[in-house]
Amino acid sequence: MAADPHDFDVSMATGIGWSSRRLREGLVRRVLMAAALLSVATTIGIVVALAVPTVQFFTRVSPVEFLTGTEWTPLFASPHFGVLPLVTATAVTTFWALLVALPLGLGCAAYLSEYAGRRTRKIFKPLLEILAGVPTVVYGFFALTFLTPLLRDIWILPGKGPQIYNALSAGLVMGIMIIPTVASLSEDAMSAVPDDLRAGARALGSTARQVTTRVTIPAALSGIIAATMLAVSRAVGETMIVAVAAGGTANLSLDPTEPMQTMTAFIAAAALGDQPTGSIGYQTLFAVGSLLFVITLIMNIVSIRLVRRYREVYE
């Protein structure tokens, strides 16, 4: 007769193995929880570290002057604390960056996801991600020493053309820098759209272009918005390119051929100088930092809302 398959020790308490396993599981759980808590604690710490000098700053400068003033000379003998020139500079460089990154990035994503063959995609995507790995200071140098001279040479529009330091080449190169972000994330979103939908649209007599514009992109809109918002965040927060190529003078202007100083570039420049702790110059850094933080926070909240609103769930 064959051995009875149920003929083994059915006792559930197995002694030593059990308690040591429980100990190890508990340890792993605690280590992982500590990792999670640490990142939350760090964020809170940064907010507090930003907030304290910022509050001190606003006891000396009125928030109204800060947010509506048009002159930014915080380190001068007779200082002005109007942050608008820095904000507009950030907006201008971000605008030009998006003007480059959105069409090229989305075009690239649409090509890879809808038109390119499997092989092309396999070669192209890693190449694209290499572009994302180039240090931004290299991009900044590229803007200053290559793009700006080129723009000055080929300038045909009215006006004097770009100055040595200008927002335009900083913005354009920043756009090139964020193309991979937009392209890669949008491509992921578009590839995630089920082929069933493409087949359905094709069977109704859609061209490849109609499938892309009327089915794939709307269906992937949530991911494309997320990619765009991440691109905006990167452009707003980008420091090296604008510090190197856009110049160091606060300048309230929308003309991208002029030099301007963004919020990030100001922080970088001022932090390099020696600002005694507790001085107004020191506190200014934190005030601008807080403003940057608030702007990106609002953008993230908006982006989460948008992403939820347009999310499609497929089986």
């Binding site: 939908l197 087949a199 359905g200 069977a203 007599g205 859609s206 709307p218």
Partner: peptide, 18 residues
Amino acid sequence: ITVRRRIGMVFQKPNPFP
């Protein structure tokens, strides 16, 4: 494209557009 406009198709799994 013209062929598919005259000869339509319904698939195995329902595939409405989002």
